[in-house]
Design a protein around this nucleic acid. Structure first.
Lengths: 250, 250
DNA sequence: GTGGATGTTCGGCAATGTCGAACGCCGTTC
DNA sequence: GAACGGCGTTCGACATTGCCGAACATCCAC
């Protein structure tokens, strides 16, 4: 890739490393992992600190992510068209289905949750906007895979006994395309299931997915199959959002 | 500032510009605003796009913030000690006071909201984690100003007739320090009030503020003064979080 | 057609950021 | 208590890096 500014790429690599690691990291560790001179990393970190993307723990000297990133992240949410168009439809879907609603896009081989509506009861739930989920073990992710919004993974992680294996994945995705929706039944977490459908943007391209998730008993019938009524709700919401996004208009 | 990597600073400036502007911006506008050559900005944008910090609208060619920032932002939330220590105390405060709770730190001369608990009724509220608020017109901000967590502004914006003016600010902050808490009564939004108290970290330094906000009628008594009961709740929560953060331990 | 936008490419120059070694500091170890 | 190894930090020299500006390809409006 010609013309790409390497100091910025290095800075981004450092930020990703800080986001993935356990809170704070030592300069020397970063330098070692990225195979760079300590002095080089120090210069980049100083700059990142200067712009607020990184903070330094005064006592240990270690580095961690900075507050400015939080604001940039939420600014992204405000901008994001997929999210803003979805909000009006996510709430009714949660109300009708009685389950939590999530909307996701692809980011670096995983599902990025860009919107989340809590299940409409009063149980304690944690907001997972900004969370990354695996593509192959979630209903949202399988939709995105099936409609080529993300490249097929070359290896997959197993979470439960029901997580689909790599060699079963193509056939599985074929069925998703046939049906027009995907399900995940205890493939990521025992006792949890989900149903999702594709959101299409301008030109019919799949740009995201919307789905509900909750306890298996509620989402599935006695045959361990997703309830048709809920599937219908999800697909209708997906279609409505797609329409809002300009799919179908010339 | 010697040794600061200028391409990274420029990249950060572009990101901040995208976050502040209206969604998407044209390359030429960015170049003009930052007084850089178009080619230079293009190279930086291409790199930012490559790392996912920026996305390009295929049809208009304009640039906007990218999805990777959302994940970095929420990673920051997971790391942030102020936030993680606060969560356990914010919920009880919301329950006891019956009002929305927010926790803020300083970012670039404004208050960054790092945690937000909704008012415990079922009215519709929007999550404003990641939002930036003015320092001088919010209870959270006045606490941060009073305890020198942020430098005094050189100019202030007026929002309502009750917003404090620049020349009144020092005396106002003196009173905040005397009391140990701050209030904002219709200074940012008509009909809304707030009460906040400082959160101290290791060594007694004020690292953030916690406060409640809601309708004036509920937060204030008939003399238009914050209700002592609510002030007590807020101060107690602030003290509890400060203790959790290691204030007072040698 | 033409003008003025846009984003994009390219080559040459030198300013820029990288490297590596040396520094100061702190905690542990012997 | 001195010596060691670890940390983050500074510095100067080298040449790689990424800047600039002009030219290019497109598009839209007039």
């Amino acid at each position: 890739m010609p013309g790409t500014v390497q100091s910025i790429e290095r800075a981004a690599a450092i930020l990703r490393m800080l986001a993935g690691g356990p809170g704070h990291l030592a300069l020397a560790d970063i330098a070692r992992s990225l195979d760079l001179a300590k002095g080089t990393v120090h210069g980049i970190l100083r700059t990142l600190q200067h712009v607020g993307f990184v903070e330094q723990d005064r006592s240990s000297g270690h580095y961690q992510l900075g507050a400015a990133l939080l604001h940039l992240g939420t600014s992204y949410l405000d901008i994001n068209e997929l999210r803003s168009r979805s909000i009006n439809w996510a709430d009714p879907l949660a109300a009708r289905s009685g389950e939590a609603v999530r909307i996701g896009t692809v980011l670096e081989g995983r599902v990025l949750v860009v919107h989340h509506v809590f299940r409409p009861d009063d149980t304690f739930q944690t907001l997972d906007i900004g969370t990354l989920l695996p593509l192959h073990a979630t209903a949202l992710g399988k939709v995105l895979l099936a409609y080529r919004a993300a490249p097929l993974p070359s290896a997959v992680e197993g979470f439960t006994r029901r997580t689909v294996a790599l060699r079963e994945l193509p056939a599985h995705l074929d069925r998703v395309r046939e049906n027009g929706w995907a399900a995940d039944i205890e493939e990521l977490t025992l006792g949890e299931a989900a149903i999702a459908a594709p959101i299409r943007g301008y030109g019919g391209l799949v740009v995201g997915a919307i789905g509900i998730s909750g306890r298996v008993e509620r989402l599935c019938d006695s045959h361990y199959e997703p309830r048709a009524r809920l599937v219908g709700y999800v697909r209708n919401a997906a279609r409505a959002i797609s329409r809002d996004l300009g799919w179908g208009v010339s």
